[in-house]
Design a protein around this nucleic acid. Structure first.
Length: 232
DNA sequence: GTAACGATTATCT
DNA sequence: GATAATCGTTACG
């Protein structure tokens, strides 16, 4: 059993130590956890099913590459446990979970979620506006899930490690996280062709076969899991 | 000041 | 598969 996952309790906020992990350690372990969005009309709960790691100043795919600490990226350099939300292509917001320690920019992009109940799905459909014909249309993609959950830059910098705010993360149930046919796979990240040797790093993680995943990679390999991971 | 572009998506062929 | 949409951020001067 993964020593980090062992400390995650279903329905409870993720332990503070989780947010001190590197993005590469945290990204596969955020799969199956519950993202909760509190709106004026009620809570929307969904399960994280696809993530990407953006870690460190050496990662040419990261906004913080080379140590770029600007007004936009500043939140990535702070301690883990906050939301880094940015606007992409002038149209879509993207949600990241900041991890790591002060001064070390680490972030996990949330690329796909699935609603936990039909009520959650209905609420997400309302925010999306368009008729989602298949699951991935609803919340399979970083921009789509932010639309479906009404996540905008107004929530940038928000704390994610304690419940009660507009957005937080709770442990998912172990049965949900490790269903009989549920396997975590890893593949190269999406949309970072410019990142040279970092473009091919297999730092995208998702549940194989999950219909909400944004892009299926036929060459994806099974994530090896907890080998070599220390207790937190 | 200003130009180039992006961790994307919807729509059209 | 190709391409338009649309604007904040970034780098450069």
């Amino acid at each position: 059993m993964d020593p980090i996952l062992k400390q995650i309790k279903p329905g409870a906020p993720l332990p503070p130590a989780f947010y001190r992990l590197t993005a590469l350690e945290a990204a596969p372990r955020l799969l199956g956890q519950t993202l909760v969005r509190r709106t004026e009309e009620g809570d929307i709960r969904c399960r994280i099913v696809e993530t990407e790691s953006y870690g460190g100043i050496e990662d040419k795919g990261s906004h913080a590459y080379g140590g770029r600490r600007t007004a936009r990226t500043d939140i990535m350099f702070g301690p883990g446990g906050t939301a880094y939300i940015y606007l992409i292509y002038g149209m879509y917001n993207c949600l990241n979970v900041v991890t790591g320690t002060e001064g070390d920019p680490q972030a996990v992009l949330i690329r796909a979620v699935e609603p936990l109940s039909s009520a959650d799905e209905a609420a997400m459909r309302r925010y999306r506006g368009t008729a989602a014909r298949k699951p991935a249309d609803l919340s399979g993609g970083p921009g789509k899930l932010c639309r479906a959950l009404d996540i905008t830059k107004a929530l940038n910098g928000l704390t994610l490690d304690q419940p009660g705010g507009p957005l937080w993360i709770e442990g998912g149930s172990m049965s949900e996280r490790f269903g009989a046919d549920e396997v975590i796979v890893q593949a190269p990240r999406i949309g970072i062709a410019y990142a040279e040797e970092y473009a091919a790093k297999p730092w995208r993680f998702y549940f194989r076969g999950n219909p909400y995943v944004s892009v299926i990679d036929k060459q994806a390999e099974v994530w090896p899991g907890d080998a070599g991971v220390a207790d937190i």
